[in-house]
Design a protein around this nucleic acid. Structure first.
Length: 204
DNA sequence: CTCCAGGACAAGC
DNA sequence: GCTTGTCATGGA
């Protein structure tokens, strides 16, 4: 069973996921995608939308404003996103960043780990980095794709076993998240899961 | 009531 | 290198 086939099954079952700039009508500016990527760290996307709405209403969404406003004030505005003190600091650090947009330079910033950095590079700047999250590891371990441990091992596994396509990377990751929410909550084979057969075959 | 979401970091071993 | 504690709101 190869990755592309799994992608196709998920796409057929769930349809396109309309994450960030895949939408036709509304394509948020790159900076807003970066903000969202930080705010959604270990946080439900619904809460992130509440925070983004607050930021827009208060006129605190642009890079410049975030640089200027106090960390405390920013924290208050993004409160619904949770971890608001940490995230306010992260956003200010990111807003002040002015280096090359490489994976390495972004990773050197406090508060940006591999998943957030890859999300920014992929969804905001269209660079072909495959985003790996907790769902990805759990689901593909269960499917018998090996017991990789580190983030980069998983990322390289996907990147070297898929066509190097930005839109494919975007949609596949979104579909994996969708699958993780719908199914794969519990350990055994889940009812109605589009990967039920593959899951059984792996014997986990 | 409990559980946990589109993680990252620091401290301890 | 790996494990655990911390950060926090809002919806199911």
């Amino acid at each position: 069973m190869n990755l592309l086939k799994i992608y196709q099954k998920l796409l057929k079952r769930f349809g396109t996921q309309n994450w960030w700039p895949m939408q036709r009508d509304f394509s948020p500016p790159e900076w807003e995608i970066c903000v969202g990527a930080v705010l959604t760290q270990n946080t439900n996307w619904g809460n992130v939308e509440l925070a983004l709405k607050n930021m827009k209403e208060k006129g605190l969404i642009s890079r410049d404003c975030i640089k200027k406003v106090s960390e405390k004030k920013l924290a208050e505005v993004i409160r619904p996103a949770g971890y608001y003190n940490q995230k306010a600091k992260k956003l200010k650090i990111l807003a002040s960043f002015s280096g090359n947009l490489t994976r390495e330079s972004l990773l050197s910033l406090w508060g940006l780990g591999p998943e957030t950095v890859d999300s920014i590079l992929l969804y905001a700047y269209g660079k072909p980095y495959f985003v790996v999250d907790a769902y990805t590891k759990r689901i593909f371990t269960r499917l018998g794709f090996g017991n990789r441990k580190s983030y980069d091992e998983w990322r390289k596994f996907f990147e070297s076993n898929l066509p190097r396509s930005v839109s494919l990377y975007k949609e596949f990751h979104a579909l994996i998240v969708k699958l993780g929410k719908e199914n794969c909550r519990k350990k055994p084979v889940c009812r109605g899961c589009p990967l039920r057969r593959e899951c059984k075959k792996s014997g986990i």
